[in-house]
Design a protein around this nucleic acid. Structure first.
Lengths: 209, 209
DNA sequence: AAACGATTGTAAATAGATTCACAAACAGGG
DNA sequence: CCCTGTTTGTGAATCTATTTACAATCGTTT
């Protein structure tokens, strides 16, 4: 699939991997790396790294490799990570609270700015420093708070309805923790985070030996 | 990639999706479904569903479709989900505790039977009903408890070392929550659960419009 | 019991992704 | 300033996955 501007989606999905390895290398004091070395580090062929990068420009120098700091800067720019993204969490149950308090988002430029629930017992509560709003007011509040990404952490049985509402409110990117793969229009990007599904495909290899 | 017995890995990865949709359909009282209908539900072409299933056998009836209960049974058997899997959680910090208490594993046949940490302040504590063992004793205890799958929830900087130890202890399936893609030998299957990586590729499409 | 509409399973065709392989480019040394 | 050893960027080749297309089959209706 090459959903946008001719760059295959698989390629875009690999860029964050490269980014993270490069950030690690930079903080370890390295300056330059070849596709060969980076490939060994990530278990990817050097040709794949070079081809992936070539979709976006020519960032290396023959005979030398890539300047780590320069490549980092370019990758962050390509992925839109040179800005902060505002995120809303929908569903403030056990899982939603963990997500709100997860310390891994902020340093990567993702700021959880508001939280929503439909349960009157939860609306108005404070969770992880955020007041929980009524999900019925999503569109209005999300606009006010400049939310660009929604994280869904609601039970499976209401996931599709919640996601339909988000789509109606104009959300274009959804990270779905609900154990349900929901339907969205083609212009809305949705990623599922589901540990059970990951386990369920690994057991195939464990049992079928 | 067709890592095992000729069935492409992408195919195996789709089976849990089919399984979940079918389980949903069964509990809604449906008996039979065609590849056409299932495809609409999952946003997959009917041909893909038929071809995927054909790697494992002939489960449908021409003119009718698939018996949902029969197909469910076969899929669970193929994926090895007609048994219970014992899981160890390694790393009992904030995230590890959430995983131990996550109620979504048990009903799908994944039982968290023990937990490990290296921090002397945490070892011996009780978390989610489990006593936390010293990770140094992993091999011995995991064998005693018949652990087949390890879930890693440790900080990025120790993830590779922990995973190396798990591999040395004979673990073949790892679900990695650490924000670090770790290296493993080819016979060890590792899946990464990383919300930040998912977000980082979605921002590409948000910004590059 | 034959004809019909629906749906599977799969061989062949197409589309897509990865790898190969090499000319072009660069840095360092003599 | 030329030679040597690297390493990039990319067209072409290969490999993999998806889709097409249709004969074979099934249940139902006439």
């Amino acid at each position: 699939m090459t959903t946008h501007s001719g760059v295959p989606e698989v390629v875009v999905d690999r860029l964050p991997q490269y980014l993270r390895a490069l950030a690690q290398l930079e903080s370890s004091g390295f300056d330059v790396i070849s596709s060969q070395q980076l490939g060994e580090l990530l278990q990817v062929t050097p040709a794949q790294i070079r081809k992936d990068l070539s979709y976006f420009g020519r960032f290396g120098k023959q005979g030398r490799g890539y300047s780590i700091s320069h490549l980092l800067e370019r990758l962050r720019n390509i992925l839109g990570l040179d800005q902060t993204w505002n995120v809303a969490v929908v569903g403030v149950g056990r899982l939603g609270r963990s997500i709100i308090s997860y310390p891994g988002f902020e340093p990567e430029g993702f700021r959880v700015v508001c939280a929503f629930d439909s349960d009157p017992a939860v609306v108005g509560q404070v969770a992880g420093g955020l007041t929980v709003y009524n999900f019925a007011d999503y569109a209005e509040i999300a606009e006010r708070e400049h939310v660009q990404i929604a994280i869904v952490a609601v039970p499976a049985n209401v996931a599709q309805a919640v996601i339909d509402n988000l789509v109606a409110a104009g959300v274009k990117s959804i990270l779905n923790y609900a154990p349900k793969s929901a339907l969205t229009p083609p212009d809305v990007r949705i990623r599922n985070v589901d540990p059970v599904v990951s386990l369920q495909s690994m057991t195939y290899y464990l049992s079928a030996v």
